[in-house]
């Protein structure tokens, strides 16, 4: 890639001096430095929306916490990615994700391969202090190869973005607001009737939980393959460069 004009900045993350290219996000630079910041709506290769709030970090001199996935690094920045306050907030966010819908891990296709489960474990969330909201949600098995289980959806909108930004179909979107929000297919119709869906399965593979899965998988069988994403984005960038 022709990048002669890239400016290099140095900053401090968790006491570590690191260097980065201008335009990189805190998330990217932290990952390169081997520092783990939890996330759920972020996926490398898709646009960042700063919605799950798990990757919030403290930046010295900023009154507010900032999402690491959307905040670009700057010269002299001092970032704290992990302390008691951030851990507490992250635990509560994960608890809220579990409490919002009906996540019953024991019977979920993604049990053991679930990103939400993994983040919960990493953050030491052992129980949910908040009341469960127990919404009644539908299940869509009308597509010949895939299922949509709203009970497991955390509204990260990775499916929406991958379908729009990579596949170019924009089959997915969101309807409603607040806790009534739901991912939808085309004009809120059964997946099997969609005319825009190409059946590529990218949405299923970026979905962090068991909300989107392949049919015929039993409990704990659904693993997701995401290698295509960075590959595709790099290929496209090269094409356009």
């Amino acid at each position: 890639m022709a990048n002669q004009n890239v400016k290099i900045v140095t900053l401090v993350i968790d006491g570590k001096d690191v260097s980065a290219q201008q335009g990189q996000t805190i998330m990217q630079v932290a990952r390169e430095a081997g520092i783990y910041i939890p996330y759920m709506c972020h996926v490398e290769g898709l646009s960042n929306i700063g919605a799950c709030r798990l990757c919030l970090v403290e930046v010295q001199g900023q009154r507010r916490l900032l999402p690491a996935c959307t905040t670009e690094v700057a010269e002299g920045m001092v970032v704290t990615t992990n302390n008691e306050r951030l851990r507490k907030y992250r635990q509560m966010i994960v608890e809220m994700m579990f409490a919002e819908r009906n996540h019953v891990c024991a019977v979920c296709v993604s049990n053991g391969h679930c990103e939400l489960q993994r983040v919960a474990q990493k953050l030491g969330v052992t129980h949910v202090r908040m009341p469960y909201l127990h919404p009644k949600l539908p299940f869509d098995a009308s597509h010949e190869r895939f299922i949509l289980d709203h009970d497991r959806c955390i509204l990260c909108t990775r499916c929406v973005r991958v379908c729009d930004e990579i596949e170019g179909a924009h089959t997915w979107d969101v309807r409603g607001r607040g806790t009534e929000s739901r991912v939808i297919i085309d004009l809120d119709q059964p997946w099997g009737t969609s005319e825009s869906c190409t059946g590529c399965g990218k949405c299923v593979n970026v979905c962090p939980t068991g909300a989107l899965a392949e049919k015929g998988r039993a409990t704990a069988e659904m693993t997701k393959k995401r290698q295509f994403l960075p590959y595709l984005t790099i290929m496209r960038e090269e094409d356009w460069a």
Binding site: I49, R53, I93, L133, L155, G176, G178, S181
Partner: peptide, 21 residues
């Protein structure tokens, strides 16, 4: 606030519902 939350971010979407409860 709960009914007007757009639903994009988790703390507002779920947090307002929890506080309302």
């Amino acid at each position: 606030c709960m009914t007007e939350s757009c639903g994009k971010c988790v703390p507002c979407r779920v947090g307002t519902a929890q506080m309302y409860g």
